[in-house]
Each structure stands twice: as C-alpha cells, then as structure tokens.
Design a protein around this nucleic acid. Structure first.
Lengths: 137, 137
DNA sequence: ACCTCACACTACCTATTGTAATGTTCACAA
DNA sequence: TTGTGAACATTACAATAGGTAGTGTGAGGT
C-alpha cells in the first residue's frame, strides 16, 4: 500500500494520514525506534487511548509501508521507513509532478501568485534555478 | 460540501471524483443541461446501468455543490455549477497554494525538474511571468 | 503449573462511493 | 374516474478507509 490521497482541507501530516495515524507518525518521526507501549504512553499524555487501538493503527501503517516493524525479543519496535524529510521530499515531488501533468500551464499561472503569498523569497530561489538551468545548455 | 482530496494514483477527473462520478461529470461537462435519463442513456452506451444508481450519484454531486439541479416540469435538469475550465482553475489554484503552504522551498526545487519533464515550453512561460512581475515593481 | 504481557485476530462504527429495490406522486390516457 | 407509467424520493446494502476495542494465543518468568 502507499499514500494515494492529499487532503486539501487539512494541514500538515493530516493531509496524508488520518488524525490518529498522523499523531503516531509525528511521535515516531520525533523520537527513537519505539514499542507500541511507548507510543501509547506519549498519546495518553493528551488523551487516554487503548493499547489495541494504537497497535491496530500502527500495524496498518506497517502495511502501508510507512512504518517498519522489528522484533526485539518479545516486543516489536517501530520506526518510519523514511525520515520525515525524505517523506516530504517524496510526497512534494510526486504532487508537483502530478500537478503539472494534470494542469500544466494552469499551474504555472498560479505559481507566481502562490509564491508571492507563501514567501516572496521563493520567487528569487526559483529565478536562480531557471538561470542555472539556462547556463547548462 | 466540497472537493477535499486529490488522488495521486488516479488521473484526470478521477483524481477528484469516484469513477462513476467522474464519468457523469465528464458527460455533463461535454454536453448541455441534462436529465438523469439522458445521462443514464450516455452511460449505458458503454455498460448497462440502473437509473436509480445514476440518480443517487447525481444527487450526491448536487449535495457536494458541483452539480446544480433545476426543476423543469416533472423532470430535473442537471448541469455543473462551474465550467470544466473554472473547475480546473479553482482546483489547480487551491492545490498550488496548498502545496506551497505545506512544502515551500521543496516544491520550488522540484518545480523545474517537473516542468522539464512535463513540457519544457512551460519553463519559458514561467520565466516570462517572473520578468513581468519584476517590471511591475 | 500458572499468570501476565505483548501481540494477533476479529469485529464494530462512521464516512465515502457504487449499487439497486421499494415507495410516492402526478400527468395523461382509456 | 381510474389506472398506468415515468420521474423522483427513500432506504438499504456492499466495499474501503480509518478509529476503536474485545477476545484469543503464546512465551517467559515465577
């Protein structure tokens, strides 16, 4: 399985995951390899949560290929298969490709407006890249 | 209701809609205001389909705000609330914004690569826009 | 031998999408 | 006037995704 949907009405990790999934990924990305119990403990700081619930969701994340499970004696330790940076890299690349593939010129038209809103400095960055590309040829 | 998910494993309208929904929108976008029966007839050219199935899905599309229903005597006529162009415009704008909001610099890095793959002419278009923007200031 | 703990298995709930049976209403024809 | 059919409304079931949690199983320590 893989991530196959980007939610426009959410933000952050919730764009790729369900709310509980997102919390779990957040914990695993901001800590070491962990057992279910450890993740449950972290989650329980906010809100009591059943051990089995955490286990089920974590196993589903393994099925999806975003977590890796490793047996350590009696317990299983979990960690993301990719770093957060790699994950965002992969996702943003795929989305960017999909967007251009799907919309082409439309996206180019929106790009600048969007860049201005998000962070004008990015426009500079983009121009630099265009210039660099031109020199190559 | 609104569109709130962009599917990376599909293409075209199927990125925004379920497969039957997509076919229905395709028909309504490429023809005049239509009754359910008309849509059903078009769909049936490929594959027999129950009238009620078409009706249910079309009414759901009305609930989502992408179709408008208008009573015409005994029958209801349906048409998209936006033209296909407007719809794609809206979606691509929203996605572009979301992408930059979420990933910022990462997207800028991927943009050029993606542009080259999709259509090198788009890079020109982008550069033109950057220049135009600079003159404004 | 037994108890506990971690894990597996199973199931239920909600939402979304596809599917379709059943119920209702009303115009028009016989 | 009655009844028939067309169009719509209502309801429901299946599949999938995600959240929740009960029950079953097995291995280690006591």
């Amino acid at each position: 399985m893989k991530i196959h949907s980007f939610k426009t009405n959410e933000s952050g990790l919730n764009r790729f995951f369900g709310p509980l999934e997102a919390k779990i990924m957040h914990i695993l990305w901001n800590g070491p390899e962990m057992a279910i119990k450890d993740v449950q403990a972290r989650l329980a700081k906010e809100q009591a949560i059943n051990f089995n619930t955490v286990m089920t969701v974590m196993n589903r994340l393994v099925d999806k290929g975003v977590l890796r499970k490793r047996a350590q004696g009696r317990v299983s330790l979990f960690q993301p298969t990719q770093s957060l940076e790699q994950f965002l890299e992969t996702q943003s690349k795929e989305l960017t490709n999909d967007l251009l593939e799907e919309f082409g010129p439309l996206v180019v038209n929106h790009m600048l407006d969007a860049l201005e809103e998000a962070d004008p400095a990015l426009i500079e960055q983009l121009e630099q890249k265009i210039q660099a590309l031109k020199k190559e040829r």
